[in-house]
């Protein structure tokens, strides 16, 4: 009986991993890309005009930005990195099956296997036909919730994001919590709101060198 139950659990996990694995394998051929970025901030605590930059990515985890002037870019979910969700790094569970934009999708929960590196959990909504992450949610180690909705377009053989809508949510404040003041007038309070990121002019697999990512972030020319 116990054997049957254990076998069932293992089978369910394999299925869950399969959805993510298909997604990761879809982008195995994506070695690098560069794209123009336009970022719009809809955050009460941050009054900033739209900013432009250029992003450079190289698999599995190298990223670089070239921006004109000061540029804030979301740490989580702002740029496309399919290698981020390697199935070897997560315990994966199916939460449920849903309809996302009139298409069948599955929601997966990802828990990191090695919590010494990161204890950040993810919930991914994956289109079952196109094998694309349409949305994700994550809770950071500080209790911060980040949600993303991703819109893709075809660039060569790859579906790449053209629009990412990120929602940053403050963790709920505990009753009686007071704001901590630190020098230079900055509260430790976190920022909540939305960030809209538009990508254009993708250049894929141009052979970006590792050394390029070791150099300081360049200033973007006008």
């Amino acid at each position: 009986m116990l054997f049957l139950f254990t076998a069932g659990v293992v089978h369910a996990q394999e299925n869950a991993a399969r959805y993510l694995d298909t997604y990761v394998k879809k982008y195995v051929g994506l070695k690098d890309y560069s794209a123009d970025v336009l970022i719009h901030y809809d955050i009460t605590a941050l009054k900033a005009p739209d900013r432009r930059a250029k992003v450079y990515y190289k698999s599995p985890d190298k990223v670089k930005f070239a921006a004109k002037g000061i540029f804030f870019f979301p740490k989580q979910g702002g740029y496309f990195n399919p290698a981020q969700f390697n199935t070897d790094n997560f315990e994966i569970k199916i939460i449920d099956h849903v309809i996302w934009n009139d298409r069948k999708a599955v929601r997966l929960q990802l828990l990191p296997k090695d919590i010494t590196k990161s204890n950040q959990r993810f919930i991914l909504t994956i289109d079952m036909g196109w094998h694309l992450i349409q949305a994700f949610e994550t809770v950071t180690s500080e209790g911060r919730k980040i949600k993303a909705i991703i819109v893709y377009e075809k660039f060569g053989e790859f579906d790449l994001p053209t629009h990412i809508e990120l929602q940053l949510e403050d963790p709920p404040a505990e009753s009686g919590e007071t704001k901590e003041l630190i020098p230079f007038g900055q509260h430790t309070k976190q920022i909540s709101g939305k960030v809209f990121i538009t990508y254009a002019n993708y250049k894929v697999n141009t052979g970006l060198k590792d050394e390029f990512f070791a150099e300081p972030n360049p200033e973007l020319s006008q």
Partner: peptide, 28 residues
């Protein structure tokens, strides 16, 4: 100074560019 100043922002954002510049110092 930069770390203290941008502590809240750095939790959520990567920050590029010369934040601690002459204009900021003047305002400070």
């Amino acid at each position: 100074i930069l770390e203290r100043m941008m502590r809240s922002m750095q939790k959520d954002f990567l920050i590029f560019g010369n934040v601690l510049n002459g204009w900021f110092i003047t305002a400070f």
